[in-house]
């Protein structure tokens, strides 16, 4: 099973839920943990994996063969991202704008374009006890994370329960992370911000036909979880777990400790969360 943890709003506790769920399932359920928040990967602070492997991830950009190029301008004309410009007798390539679609190479009438890789980040992998682990780290200044997210997901081990820690938001990086998931666990907090962004993230998962469930984190903070529950019942999304607001959890987090370190009895609740997810699916 592939289980994605998402939220819309940042800082609601995605990583906390993903990490503690993975830990609570040990040792009897092998887990492969994929941190797909490649812009700001954080799960390693809590799982503390030994990273054994690192591989560079490249994106393809065009390179012009000056011997063959006739400066006809076809490549610049067909590039939907304005990543190429032809001025007199030179072709300018803007790597930051290039999506690596390969269209310019395919459509160049002189066969004067080949593709070369430029590094956008790394995928690091290893293990934390019985949990196998991988995350991506986008290089600073790189704009496009989806190709790196795809690379992290290629590490997926089909024989294990795959837990994906998604980035915040609802746009392309989140979609890339959720793609192919069997279940999407949405973590929210009972504030108007949490609810507003939950609605958006729930909408994205719905559009992708991924079954959904909600974890309410920091319950009883702010105005209570009434509005979140109303939304969930309207949408037919089960609320699978409630984590109360507890300063001990926030302090443990600030020390790089897990929720299970702070409150060991929560282990059973995370195991029940997983059972509920499995039941929802059957």
């Amino acid at each position: 099973m592939i289980l994605s943890v998402a939220s819309g709003k940042g800082g609601t506790g995605k990583t906390t839920v993903a990490v503690n769920l993975a830990l609570a399932l040990q040792p009897d359920r092998p887990v492969h943990f994929l941190d797909c928040d490649v812009e700001e990967p954080n799960a390693h602070f809590f799982l503390k994996p030994v990273l054994e492997k690192s591989r560079e991830v490249l994106k393809l950009i065009p390179e012009i063969d000056k011997g063959r190029c006739t400066y006809c301008g076809r490549c610049a004309e067909i590039c939907a991202y304005n990543a190429l410009a032809v001025v007199k007798d030179s072709v300018l390539v803007f790597p930051d704008l290039c999506h690596g679609c390969g269209g310019c190479r395919l459509l160049c009438p002189e066969d004067a374009i080949r593709e070369v890789g430029v590094r956008i980040g790394v995928v690091e992998s290893g293990r934390a006890g019985g949990i196998t682990f991988a995350h991506g780290r986008l290089d600073i200044g790189q704009a496009m994370s989806p190709p790196l997210i795809r690379a992290v997901k290629e590490e997926r081990n089909a024989g294990r329960v795959v837990i994906i820690d998604s980035p915040p938001g609802t746009s392309c990086p989140v979609i890339e992370s959720l793609k192919g998931s069997d279940f999407c666990l949405l973590v929210t907090e009972p504030t108007p911000f949490g609810l507003h962004d939950l609605e958006l993230a729930a909408g994205a998962a719905k559009e992708m036909n991924i079954p959904r469930g909600v974890v309410v984190n920091r319950a009883f903070l702010g105005g209570g979880d009434g509005p979140v529950r109303d939304f969930c019942s309207r949408e037919g999304i089960p609320v699978l777990m409630t984590i109360p607001f507890d300063r001990r959890i926030a302090e443990a987090y600030s020390r790089g400790e897990t929720l299970l370190d702070a409150i060991p009895s929560a282990r059973q609740e995370f195991r029940e969360l997983f059972e509920r997810i499995e039941r929802t699916r059957s």
């Binding site: 812009e39 700001e40 986008l138 200044g141 790189q142 704009a143 994370s145 980035p167 990086p173």
Partner: peptide
């Protein structure tokens, strides 16, 4: 927005 990618840049 959070992150370091395209919208933040």
């Amino acid at each position: 927005s959070p992150g370091i990618g395209c919208p933040v840049i």
